[in-house]
Every structure is written in C-alpha cells, then in structure tokens.
Simulated scan of single mutants.
Amino acid sequence: MKEPTPIKILIADDETLARKRIETFLEETSFPIILLQASNGKQTIDKILNDTPDLVFLDIKMTDMTGFDVLQQLPKESIPEIIFVTAFDTFAVQAFEVQALDFLLKPYKKARFLEALERGMLRVQQSQEHSFSEKVEELMKYISGNKPELGDTPAGYLDKIVLKSNKKYIFVATENVQYIKASGYYAEIFTHKGEKHLYRISMTELSQKLDPTSFSRVNRSAIVNRNFVKEVISEGLGDFSIVMTDQTAFPLSKTHKSTFLKQMGIRS
C-alpha cells in the first residue's frame, strides 16, 4: 500500500508557547506531517515562498507585521491554505467567518483545533487552490475596504457585529443596536429588544467601525444609535442629556456636544 504523502504545515506565530501548543496538537494526530515554523511576518513570507507549505496556521498580530500584511505581500498563486489564529480581533473574525476561511480564537481547545485542522487538510487533499484563491482575493478586497457584501456597508462600516458565546457565534445587526456602554475592556451592546451582549473591544475602535449616519459617541462611556433617541433635554448652563426609547439617559459631554446636536438638527 502506498504511503500517504506528508503535508507541509507552517506554524507562524511570534509567541513560542503558541507555536509549541500547535506543534503538540499536531504531534498527537495520525496525519503524516512535515512541520515548519516562523516567528515573524518576514520569516513567514520566506517560508511560504521557499518551502511551499500546504497549510499555514497564521497569527494575526506578529511583531513586525500582521497576517493581513503577509497575505498582501504574497503572489496570489503562492498563497497556501490558511487557518487564521487570533487572540482578540473580533472584527477580523467576522471577515473570516463570512469568507468561510477557518480561524482559531485564542484560547482554543484541542477539539476546536482538530476541527480546523481536519477542514484544512481536506481542502489540501481536494486541491481546491482555485476556489481558495478567489476567496483570498475577496478577503483582500474586504481588508482594503472595497468589499460591499461581506457584512459591511458600502462605506466599510459594520452592518452586523459578530459575538462569540461559548461555541456559538451570534450576529447582531447594527440597525437593531440602541446604544453601547463601556464596561472595562468590554463594550455592552443593548438592542432595541432589550437584549444585552458583551463585545471585547474598545469604545474608540468600535465607534470607528459604526456608521456615523446613525451612531454618535455622546460621552467617553457611551455610543447611541440616533434612530432610538427619544428626547434631548437641555439641563441649563449649556448641558444636555439624551433619553433613549427605553428611558435610559446619558449625559452629553462637552467634547461631543457640538457634533451630536448638529447631527440631531438642534442649534445649541
């Protein structure tokens, strides 16, 4: 019986322990593997071009460049199968989910790793290079803001937020988000139906991804969807408060007052 051809797998991660974790999981499988490693983006590019791995576990944020940078610097025909690895970039997770490119969200369990590995190995064995290249090309368009149908508005703003809950991914349409509150390292997202979700992202980063034709930062700790603003109350001495349709109230800070009032068609 002919021995199966070994599959070359590249682990690209700037953290030694992260590479070791994947290496250990791979060693516990029955797949015939040739293992390669890279600790930064430049090494990753060199390994892909010179050693031509079949499958790459690609970290999103390395010391010298991102996983996106790596893909953008490679000729399209040289890009192998990719399993993305990320610790916290949920916006990137959304791109991968919509594009059907697999990813591992740190910290991941062995079962989830094996699921991703088996999917990647199957793609390698089926030699789906053409369809994968098309997906990578679409992902590149998404990254550069030119993709209008991947869960973003034509201008590149989110039209849905992907939230991880245990083994599930929940999709919340931004048009249904009433307001967002800061909570430590998380953002608390409240929908018009009274649902509450936690999203690990800074308020500044999230505000940049929301369509300004609907969303406004009203103070350091709150973003509101103006479609759900019930009242704007003048408190005197130039102070204002905002009341939402569920009666939740927010103070309007001086930093954001002029812009918000203008957006609401109010002259202060």
Rank of each mutant, 00 (worst) to 15 (best):
L198Y: 12
L122V: 06
D239E: 13
K135W: 13
T248C: 09
D64H: 04
F31H: 13
L35R: 13
L237I: 02
I11Q: 01
E115V: 03
S127P: 02
I223A: 00
P6D: 12
F132P: 02
Y179A: 01
K181T: 11
I33W: 07
D102M: 07
A95K: 06
G236K: 11
Q125D: 10
E175N: 09
T174E: 04
P251C: 06
I201S: 11
T255V: 12
P53Y: 03
D152K: 13
I83L: 00
D89I: 01
G194N: 04
I79P: 01
D159F: 10
T191Q: 08
F132W: 12
L122A: 14
R226H: 00
E138G: 08
L71H: 02
E118F: 11
S234C: 13
K2I: 07
L10F: 11
N176S: 14
F96G: 00
Y179L: 02
A100L: 08
I48G: 00
S39M: 08
H197V: 05
A92S: 14
T153Q: 07
K254G: 04
L36D: 02
E77D: 15
N225H: 10
I33R: 12
I180P: 01
S131C: 10
K168Y: 10
K193C: 14
S131Y: 07
Q126R: 15
D59C: 03
Y157N: 11
T52R: 15
G194W: 08
D102N: 11
E23M: 05
A87M: 03
T245R: 08
S234P: 13
N146E: 14
F132C: 05
D89P: 03
E129H: 15
P80L: 03
K230Y: 03
